[in-house]
Design a binder for these strands. Sequence first.
DNA 1: GATGAATGAGAATTCATTCAT
DNA 2: CATGAATGAATTCTCATTCAT
Lengths: 186, 186, 186, 186
Amino acid sequence: MRADAVRTRKQLLDAAFAMFAERGAEVSVAEIAERAGIGKGTVFRHFATKEDLIAAIVGDLIDDLVEAAESRHDAVDPTAALREFMTYGVARLVDNQALCDVAGGSVRHLDVEAGVARLADAVHVLVGRARVRGELTGRDVVLLMTGVHKAAAPLRDAEPDLWRRYLGFLLDGLLDTTSSAPHSRT
Amino acid sequence: MRADAVRTRKQLLDAAFAMFAERGAEVSVAEIAERAGIGKGTVFRHFATKEDLIAAIVGDLIDDLVEAAESRHDAVDPTAALREFMTYGVARLVDNQALCDVAGGSVRHLDVEAGVARLADAVHVLVGRARVRGELTGRDVVLLMTGVHKAAAPLRDAEPDLWRRYLGFLLDGLLDTTSSAPHSRT
Amino acid sequence: MRADAVRTRKQLLDAAFAMFAERGAEVSVAEIAERAGIGKGTVFRHFATKEDLIAAIVGDLIDDLVEAAESRHDAVDPTAALREFMTYGVARLVDNQALCDVAGGSVRHLDVEAGVARLADAVHVLVGRARVRGELTGRDVVLLMTGVHKAAAPLRDAEPDLWRRYLGFLLDGLLDTTSSAPHSRT
Amino acid sequence: MRADAVRTRKQLLDAAFAMFAERGAEVSVAEIAERAGIGKGTVFRHFATKEDLIAAIVGDLIDDLVEAAESRHDAVDPTAALREFMTYGVARLVDNQALCDVAGGSVRHLDVEAGVARLADAVHVLVGRARVRGELTGRDVVLLMTGVHKAAAPLRDAEPDLWRRYLGFLLDGLLDTTSSAPHSRT
DNA sequence: GATGAATGAGAATTCATTCAT
DNA sequence: CATGAATGAATTCTCATTCAT
């Protein structure tokens, strides 16, 4: 890909990211193109359909979360690592509210589903090492993160930190708190 | 209202309920009318706008939940009552998947907002009597219920009971478990 | 026709007259029915189509004007009579602004056309006796009256009497002013 | 603007002009698009709303009249100039029958109102120099022109030149005829 | 006879997508 | 390659008219 095409693509992704985050999937391609400073046709040159564009944006978000999970695979305190990861992840979702709302289910896209699967795997490793009550899969954690976000979303403007309280409730139910220093008794 | 009008209205509400539950507020009035076996114009005779129709559907759901909450106001075991109510409520949301998605906030309708406020009040009484950890309002409980539902929603078809596990996690974090027999120490 | 049917018809005509006068032909049959305190179906029992109803209303106006013209057929001062008639007629049109606006041409109805023809004939007699410049038919006078009304109509609210000035201009051009006492020199 | 877009726009304006002239503002955008041989969406690409389209059409007509008035501001015989202008103006209205009907007041559009104000000003200069009876503003002249047109409009097809007679009546009432040779007495 | 419930043909407008320039 | 002009299906909503009760 040529240098200017790369730049154009970045402008497009930045604009789409920002607008989807602000207003959800309802934003029109025309608005995104305008904000990106490019023509409508150019959007479709990069992404065959609007859904492909959304999938690309969501994909970037997922990639970021995968990295966040993997970077904690060798954490000294795995339970704290899981807690940190979930906090980080929900914060990301909150940043992208409407976008998540989009990813929540209305988007049925192969790339997204593959990304979610990768994320679930990466998180599963975290879960496996952490001290959690009962059975819990990486996929469970991913779903629960979206649940925390969506529970707090209606009041995002009024109480931007509400999700932290809700995540706290969940973590209290999920984690074996004594495990916050799991190796100390060895 | 005439007998045939009552029947038509019921057909309309049933169709709208089912389609909103399946596919959310995105379904068009035309589709609802077709499924109900009535004309487009008839929908608007019963509900002046599409939003009014949605509000009516959601309103019925909310009324049911309000009643479910109020009927437990004098429960002998208030903590169990809250648990029961939340279980009942999430089950109702699951029945109406996308509809909840609608109630979540995307719909801005006076009737809905009033209903949600009533529900929060009714639940607040339950919360006040139950043994819960820390501060918790009726509104928190309502929001958390939608969160549980939405977390499990993507897998509703594959694992219809997933929400029960997720609700269990939350309740573990929320309730003071010893309170399941609150009077035992008297 | 039974007595109550007569009463119903009068309510309908009164309501239709008032609403057409206020807001023109755009008012819906439903609104007229409501204002008349009768059912929509009853409107169509009396008038097969909305246009028939409009024609009836306009017809009443025309009948009134025909009478106004005929009552002056034997006036002592025919030129003054014509002037009076035109003043009376434009005033009637102004009362019914939007209605006239409707009758102005958009309505193509046999009854209306017949009424206008009768009116033109009745006015023609007036014109024939008055001292007017050049050729002038009854139909000309009728059309000119609507023209005066329509010229002033856009400012009806701001300057309710503007039409009197405009009618004055026209009469100055139309009438032989010395004729105000046409028989005095005999 | 691209060459093909210019052509499309012209087709659109021509079609809209003709159809508004024939049938007034009631014609649907769909019909205009069909007559222009373009898609419905293309109409809205050029004019955001139907009212904008109407305003554009009427605006062109008004601009033409403003120019016609201003070009006569320095006429040697001001009274003849006013007569000429009014003749020219009514002729333009006759070309656009229903369109004028639109401009008459039913359309409430900022651009149109501004244009009419400009026209009234330009005509006022003409009136100020002409020898007219009594008080007469530029706005009066504009309104009276529409009145002449509308009076004759119902018979436009049968007697296309009827408006000339009616304008003659009005001018006889309006103008001080001796002024047709204003310098003769010097 | 009266009623108002039901109808469905439009109307204006939006927007993802295609394609000529 | 990039552009934005053109498209037309889809959407919400209105209203004259019909007809079962």
